[in-house]
Design a protein around this nucleic acid. Structure first.
Lengths: 193, 193
DNA sequence: GCCGAAACGGAGTCTATACTCGGCTTCAGA
DNA sequence: TCTGAAGCCGAGTATAGACTCCGTTTCGGC
């Protein structure tokens, strides 16, 4: 007998379906970034110029759509971070990374979910894992270059990152407040002067 | 003609009503602390051993109940902080305060709402204002004692406090992680060594 | 104990939002 | 162009949670 074939298998989509899928992903990215994961499917469909039914035809649940967006975002973050780790100056790359994450988090409300989510779904597990490993590389590089204290571990770095990213979401602060806050954290990370 | 009298005016409650009111407040405190402001009224009523109707008889909306709880909490925090500012050693009181806020926040999910809520409702505005002023006093005391850099302002202290309290909510971290994270922040706040 | 007012309880209403269903439209291969 | 399968749509369903309504119960002054 023929083996069970899930309907979602990698079939060739009709042109209109392909176009709508792309529109839905683009709309979802914007809406989730602006309003966070609680944004309604209705709004995403409206923004995509599509009926709700079409959204659910492409993604079986809202959660699946969110995961697709988070997966993309995680991939982009991981790639950016890896290239920074590869090409950047180890002495400063770690701080550049930290700052850019905080700025991204203030702009797109989904960043924090990747960092803080307790239950990492399978769909984003791989890029998130890469991201975490790359953070460790950046940290180790900065420690070797002497710009971060040797006894700092990645666990507290990630905790601080989550904290500052969260804080950046609340009452989107003035740019100089962000700078002053980050400079305190960075001073705490640096070796004793 | 008689002036309009809101039904909620400070009338003497019947004994059963007084008892239920106290039970509802106690239940709401526990439930909100454990699950955050999103906890359902149903659950609070169940925990209080009371019907939902009774909850709404005492508090017109869920929001009003939450505000009552937040008000109490803000009052307690403000009082504790003020006594620390009055009696504690200025050199260490600020750090003691910061640590205890983070510990409280990890235990009771409502603490963060007092700090981070963008729109401070009238019911909690006064104690929250007192708390903020007292934080400034603690900060100023530590700066005079030379344990915090003179150029640090209260805005970034509160931002850091919000951040670390938020981080403490996610995946309730091991005690030594909290210590290591706080020690980085505290090092950043201290004058150059 | 009696009685009216106060308070209680929880089924029912209303609203928001995820998700379904089936008739209609569009695509693409012949 | 014709046709059937693929895809679209949005009214409809299901569920959760805030809040209401009113018949029932309890309190407390006489």
């Amino acid at each position: 007998m023929a083996p069970y074939e899930p309907a979602t298998a990698g079939r060739t989509l009709r042109s209109d379906a392909r176009r709508n899928r792309a529109r839905i992903l683009a709309a979802a990215e914007q809406v989730f970034a602006a309003k966070g994961p609680a944004a309604s499917t209705e709004e995403i469909a409206r923004r995509a110029g599509v009926g709700v039914g079409t959204v659910f035809r492409h993604f079986p649940t809202k959660e699946a759509l969110l995961q697709a967006i988070l997966g993309e975002l995680a991939g982009r973050l991981a790639a950016d971070t890896e290239s920074l780790a590869r090409d950047g100056d180890p002495a400063t790359a770690f701080f550049t990374f930290f700052t850019s994450m905080v700025e991204r988090s203030a702009r797109t409300k989904t960043v924090i979910d990747l960092l803080a989510e307790a239950d990492i779904p399978i769909t984003v597990a791989k890029p998130v894992e890469t991201l975490r490993r790359t953070i460790e590389d950046l940290l180790a590089g900065a420690q070797r270059a002497g710009t971060v204290r040797a006894d700092v571990r990645s666990a507290e770095v990630i905790a601080l990152l989550i904290g500052v990213c969260q804080a950046a979401l609340y009452a989107d602060w003035a740019p100089d407040l962000q700078d002053r806050t980050l400079s305190i954290v960075f001073d705490g990370l640096r070796p004793s002067r």
